[in-house]
């Protein structure tokens, strides 16, 4: 581990100032510390933001929820309002990591977790995300975990998380305090980036930006499903995951939000898939059509080719479940 300076921020301003000076925020540290041990990440300074007052979940004026950036994954998943009004979020969080990690990991930190690409993790390997310009080891190499949508010649990594996939399906926003103290709100679907030719940037955060909360719109109702497909029953990253919030009226899909994990550099959200389903009666043919639209530009890299049929199959199963009358998943 490279030596680094450590300080604690008592206020958001202190944190932001340190961040502006190049310090890396640490909250739960569940991903950052691993990467620092491997020297995949080598910050000169860490600023501990745990003292900040960002640990509560509150109701917003419009009837939604504001989840503080330092609320742990365990606390968020267990919150009665989350469980009752946004079950897809609770399910997604509980599908990730392990109990120990969820006790430590935070809402803001989870959004910022880095890819699990094998080549990103190994400093003997080329990786444009870790070392821009060094090349991509995963292309032509072992790429079981990798992207089938939105990848580039520079990077085929995936965003590994579960929580952000559910947040994307819930149309949540990330509340960000800029270095100058201004607040802005970014939809979760716009928070993570596609790699393009700058894969070193995972998301839209600028220097000194501090995530202060995630806000959820008023309870969407409907049926919530989170389905995660992986290589073992627990403690494995999604090969494909699907978050769905669906509402039915008179046997037709009156509204649906879908987001996908494990298949791209960001939680994948494609309005065209939702459009084709909205207003229609559920049927296998309709689900197939949704899958076709979702995957029309999908490209396999060799060891992840299976994700294309797997995503189609998983989407169909989730739609079957979410649109079944009286369903509660």
């Amino acid at each position: 581990m490279r030596p680094f300076n450590y300080s604690r921020a008592e206020t958001e301003k202190e944190a932001a100032d340190a961040g502006s000076d190049g310090a890396t925020f640490i909250a739960g540290g569940t991903n950052l510390l691993d990467l620092m041990k491997l020297e995949v990440m080598t910050p000169d300074a860490l600023v501990d933001i745990n003292p900040l007052d960002l640990k509560s979940i509150s109701t917003t004026d419009d009837g939604g929820l504001r989840i503080g950036a330092l609320v742990t994954n365990s606390d968020c998943a267990a919150d009665q309002r989350v469980r009752h009004d946004y079950p897809v979020l609770s399910k997604a969080i509980l599908a990730g990591a392990s109990g120990q990690l969820r006790n430590k990991a935070t809402t803001g930190g989870n959004l910022c977790q880095r890819t699990r690409c094998y080549y990103f993790y190994d400093t003997a390997m080329p990786c444009n995300k870790r070392e821009p310009g060094s090349g991509c080891g995963a292309i032509g190499g072992v790429n079981r975990l990798h992207a089938i949508l939105g990848a580039s010649d520079a990077c085929i990594a995936t965003y590994p998380g579960d929580m952000a996939v559910a947040l994307s399906a819930l149309d949540a926003s990330v509340e960000i305090r800029s270095a100058n103290g201004n607040m802005r709100s970014v939809p979760v679907t716009d928070f993570h980036r596609l790699p393009g030719d700058t894969p070193e940037k995972d998301n839209v955060l600028e220097t000194g930006d501090l995530i202060t909360a995630v806000t959820l719109p008023p309870p969407p109702g409907g049926t919530h499903v989170y389905r995660k497909v992986r290589d073992r029953s627990s403690y494995a990253f999604a090969l494909v995951s699907v978050a769905a919030v669906a509402k039915m009226e008179n046997g037709k899909i009156s509204g649906i939000r879908l987001a996908f994990g494990g298949i791209a550099h960001k939680p994948w959200h494609d309005p065209a898939v939702e459009d084709v389903l909205t207003g229609e009666s559920p049927s296998e043919a309709l689900f197939d059509k949704a899958g076709e639209i979702l995957l029309k530009d999908a490209i396999g890299q060799g060891s992840n080719d299976f994700k294309i049929p797997l995503a189609r199959r998983t989407l169909s199963a989730v739609l079957r479940q979410a649109t079944a009358s009286g369903a509660s998943a």
Partner: peptide, 13 residues
């Protein structure tokens, strides 16, 4: 490639 216990999958409980 999979040189840790997150990616080398032994069975979990």
């Amino acid at each position: 490639a999979n040189r840790d216990l997150a990616e080398y999958h032994v069975p979990v409980n």
